[in-house]
Nucleic acid binder design. Structure first.
Lengths: 347, 347
DNA sequence: TCAGTTTTAGATATCGATTTCTGTATGATG
DNA sequence: CATCATACAGAAATCGATATCTAAAACTGA
């Protein structure tokens, strides 16, 4: 059992440097209160000699600050969210903040508990991707700052970062049309999220704006809800929709998937039914997760800049916390079509 | 600007319930100090009425405890680590702990800063995947508990969780041999990590134990170091090694990749060179990240149970922190070959 | 030179909890 | 009924920092 050394506090430093704890604190906490150079030096040296580490709990308690921010997402196992987190972490680290990571698995109760826990930990800001934003207002009133991802909620005083899924889907479908496709199906998990609904709308709008009938038969939309905690749900759903495609004997030549994972599942299962992508059917994904380019065929997809979303969210939040910026804003990121090899032009 | 309500403290609760703060604390913190039922009820009701939330900073400061644990990994954007994190989070949440997530990007300086920061936040335990464990000893002496992933360091008083990469590679190569392959290459990024070295050893051992000459020509091992912060490094390296394979005009019929990402890169690039997997060449990956089964062809690979690693790490750490268990241990997880479609039996 | 600033150091209160210490009321014991 | 242990409540100290308040010293300027 290693002997644990006694913790050295600011009092120890002060004593060694022969100054008051107040002075030691002023030097060590980077306060702008003036301290004579001689004393300052003594304090710094004593701190070094004693290998002093400040106790952040005490500092935060007294000064009512925090250098942690909360991040609440459905699940880190979704590569889209891991990119978001990466962006947040990069920016947060740059400014000396740490991340408290919370996975809700889309469980409202879990989300509630996490919010409360973050509040109790005196976190001042939270970046959250939530389904039901019911509880958030309560914490805004308590003084927490929020940045919401992928969700627009009126009357909520916080910043929003969203992505123009409508336009993304629209662009994707137009690209298919330009490539000669007119029978285009839409593959998705249930339209429970705002983003998915927008994507669906964009798909339909692009079709009708181009004089193509919107046929319900081409809606391959999963019906059973995602189960809490289930991994690979989107992938599985994509496979099921491929089965459904075959069952319905659809003649679509192209498909827009609501996200890349769905596209992967769809493509793999179509392969089992003897249909190749892009030779027999073209597929466009959505998100551009890093595997999209590793897939075979490399997936043509709408880029949802997850890393950028994370970075922006952190910037907005931390600017607010540091008082650099007081106004809330809605940032809408524009889609970009990444053309790879999963779409074949029709003759 | 929403008016922020004044924070309600335990003193407010005590006053409303007409008891001393001491009594209120005993009720609200779940202490086992006896409190008469009548008072207890008054306290609970007052807390509810005032919507009281304890200040964890104050609680932790006074009681010298923490319900945060630190997690230090190279990068969350690697799906292997996101699974590890998921396992940790699940177990931690179950026991009321939160995660402080730190991505080092294999930067030793960053790791140092994070360790210090976690220590200052009074975290009591850290799960870490580190390259250089030099600094860890110092924090062990300061009383921190560690669980190390993928690393064995002698004379370090902490628990280890590792994976038998040697055996995993050995099993994979034997499987190839059973399928008639005798010319088997090894594809890898530089052997800077302990796990990669073990994998390489296992590959060589399996060959020689089966009376197959170990030929240096078949070592397709990247030479340039991973750059800090680079995403998709393993994938890119896999592609480069495919180019190298062609350049060397190798006649290998099968390949063992050091991890799945490398395998993906290799397979994609070989495809560009006109070689199909598994028809022209068989490939076995390593890790079984969730994309392995979504890939085409679904990848035969050695399962490295990342989620389980995370869960175990959290269990060991939290058992220790809660005093349930005082001894350190080394847990070695056994490999399992997941057979899918990327290996073809030779006639 | 002396009143009035300004600069700088230290004593002390404070953040919001828990915990120890003290003391009273109650119950058990012989 | 006296004695002693036990149950329970509250006062006050404490965790480790920062911030406020007080005051001495140094510096102004008329």
């Amino acid at each position: 059992m290693p002997r644990v050394k006694d913790k050295v506090t600011i009092y120890d430093v002060a004593k060694m440097a022969n100054v008051s704890p107040a002075t030691a604190s002023r030097v060590l906490s980077g306060s702008n209160y003036p301290v004579k150079e001689a004393l300052r030096k003594r304090v710094v040296e004593a701190a070094k000699k004693l290998n002093y580490s400040p106790n952040m709990l005490a500092r935060s308690l007294k000064s009512n600050t925090s250098n942690d921010i909360g991040v609440i997402i459905p699940t880190i196992s979704n590569p889209f969210y891991s990119s978001v987190i990466l962006g947040i972490e990069k920016e947060a680290d740059k400014r000396g903040y740490n991340l408290l990571l919370c996975n809700t698995f889309r469980d409202v109760e879990k989300e509630k508990r996490y919010l409360q826990s973050l509040y109790e930990k005196q976190v001042k800001g939270v970046i959250i991707s939530t389904l039901g934003a019911r509880n958030i207002q309560e914490y805004i009133e308590k003084g927490l700052e929020f940045v919401l991802l992928d969700q627009k909620i009126d009357n909520l005083e916080c910043s929003f970062i969203s992505f123009d899924c409508f336009k993304g889907a629209y662009m994707a479908v137009e690209y298919l049309i330009q490539n000669g496709h007119r029978k285009i199906a839409f593959v998705s998990s249930p339209l429970t999220k705002w983003t998915r609904k927008e994507t669906f709308k964009g798909y339909k709008a692009a079709l009708s704006d181009n004089g193509i009938a919107v046929e319900e038969e081409y809606f391959l939309i999963g019906s059973h809800e995602e189960e809490i905690d289930e991994e690979g749900f989107e992938f599985k759903n994509g496979k099921e929709m491929a089965d459904e495609f075959i069952k319905r004997k659809l003649d679509a030549t192209a498909v827009l998937a609501v996200n890349d994972m769905t596209a992967f599942g769809f493509i793999q299962q179509m392969y089992l039914h003897g249909k190749r992508v892009p030779d027999d059917i073209s597929v466009i994904g959505f998100d551009d997760i890093s595997f999209a380019r590793m897939f075979s065929p490399p997936l043509t997809t709408v880029q949802y800049p997850a890393y950028e979303v994370g970075r922006l969210a952190a910037m907005l939040l931390l600017d607010k916390l540091s008082g650099n910026n007081h106004s809330n804003m809605s940032v809408n990121l524009h889609p970009k079509l990444i053309i790879r090899d999963s779409v074949k032009p029709l003759a």
